[in-house]
Amino acid sequence: MHAAEVSHIAKSFGRTQAVADVSFAVERGEIFGLLGPNGSGKTTTLRVLLDVFKPDGGTVSILGGPMSEEKKNRIGYMPEDRGLYQDLSLEKCLLYLSTLKGVPAKEARTRLAEHLERFDLAEHKGKKVKELSKGMQQKAQIINTILHRPELIVIDEPFTALDPLNTQLVKDLMKELRDQGSTIIMSTHQMPQVEELCDRILLIDDGRDLLYGDLDQIRRQYSGHAVLVRSAGDLPDVEGVAQVVPHNNATKLMLAEGTSPQDVLEALIAQRVIVERFEIAVPTLDEIFIRVVEEGDA
């Protein structure tokens, strides 16, 4: 049984179509990345998934069926825009929101103390939320999302405003939650974090899914379109190379459609180039993202 499953959903607001046709399924216990350019429909997709918005078409299943009041306590959601009471103290704000998620007040207090300590916020618990820095508010928001120990965590841009130390802290937390059996759906622009954390991804643009599946398979699927070459002396022009990009101590040759790495290597040898290093470049997620979105736009 999937933790969440979305099939051909569509959602419009007036004349604006936010989501045209998106389908995906999220396995239990995985970290799933929802990627896409700004305005691609990610947030609307998440809201439809969480039954905040009813879809115009398609079906949604979450934790084994339609959304219910009981299921709300089993889901943690962190919207991209921080949703905290600015005029309440950090402690009161988080306690109130966690009791609304069904956690008894005493238990919520105990759990909150542990999390505040871990996130280095304990000494700020009496401060009003609006007095905290953006990074601190982001950490508070993350605590609010997980304090009731949800089975499914939906988290929109979790690394916004975090410094490298806190980014690492959140990454460790997410891995820990996954290892404990929680399912995480993460929407983000930060590809390095996706590459490190996500098992599978969905890339959407203009409200449609463009790329979906296992991250390693996707990388392999998109490799072979570039090679890394280091040579003694300058590289000559090689037929079938669309673009030449300096890359650390080597050169990345972006291959034109129909050209294979073998063709490039043969051409280099034919031109008596002394090849010191030749390897097939595994594309970064950034590169795949740009390429897929550009192809989609074309």
Binding site: E69, P79, R82, G83, L97
Partner: peptide
């Protein structure tokens, strides 16, 4: 305005 409503709607009807 402060987006708490979105959090509330995932907690309570």
């Amino acid at each position: 305005e402060n987006r708490v409503m979105e959090i509330l709607m995932l907690s309570i009807s």
